[in-house]
Design a binder for these strands. Structure first.
Lengths: 146, 146
DNA sequence: TCAAGACTGAGAATCATTATCATTATTGAC
DNA sequence: GTCAATAATGATAATGATTCTCAGTCTTGA
């Protein structure tokens, strides 16, 4: 199961003329271990001995190859997660405005349908070619509610 | 019309023990002039003579008072816009992944309804108290499509 | 086995944002 | 109106996440 996933990652990197090195494998495994977007400090804390500079460089390589995605948050640290093709399912995010943590939630068919219509309208009205979307529900996690 | 708006901004700042100074008024007017989220460099370019440090400090004050909202983007600059109560209408964003520009689009009732259901589910399943949401349609603007 | 080129990691550089602080402007009390 | 007390300003320095640099190491394919 995960072996097949690693093969696909390797293929994806190969297509981008990149190798699937030990550090990159450690990063992918860290993402598989937790199913929520993680910051670079979180990643290096989990991957013992990985230098910051290597973490950033390899995340950038994995991002260019389409294996991971960087998500923008309002707190200071960026967060990374496996691209949907690798994490398995289309999902959206629950964002805590207290601590900044981000949790994955399943997408609903109703929302997806409505979004397709909205994308069509955006193309008509503004000339945008829509390729993706992002939905965040914002609030406070159980911990931050005290 | 805009006079009433300025009164409401003044009230909002007063509630936060802040004054509605010239610089703050200039910022609010800049937001009214363009109806899309703007970066700090864009703002100081439009408001002649406004120092960067004053721009950042006053945006922060306006944000704490609930007059402007900072939106997170994946490019390097943050973007600010008037909070919905002041800009007039609930809206979502069209984001160009080429140049990073952000354009407002109207929210659709269908999506809003579906989001309320999703928020209910998030509370049940994850203990989050949802207070807001954010929808971005991501693609390429007419210019960046060449 | 060897050369070409990719990868690594320590440290320096970058750049948006924040903090500092002396100066200036505003306010409320008298 | 005058006078503290307090808030706002803006130049500059500091911060901190991210990116770049570069010399050394590892892979790969011939």
């Amino acid at each position: 199961m995960t072996a097949a996933l690693h093969d696909r990652v390797a293929q994806c990197l190969a297509d981008a003329d990149q190798r699937y090195t030990e550090n990159r494998r450690l990063l992918v495994n860290a993402f598989l271990a937790k199913d929520r977007p993680m910051t670079v400090p979180e990643l290096v804390a989990v991957i013992d001995g990985l230098p910051l500079s290597s973490a950033y460089r390899n995340l950038s390589v994995l991002q260019d190859a389409g294996v991971v995605t960087r998500i923008a948050t309002s707190d200071d640290n960026g967060r990374y997660e496996l691209t949907e093709g690798f994490s398995g399912h289309h999902h959206h995010h629950l964002v805590c405005e207290g601590c900044g943590i981000v949790v994955d939630i399943a997408a609903s068919p109703t929302i997806e349908r409505a979004l397709r219509a909205a994308a069509r309208r955006a193309t008509q009205d503004h000339g945008f070619a829509i390729t993706d979307h992002r939905i965040d529900l914002i609030g406070r996690c159980a911990t931050c509610q005290r």
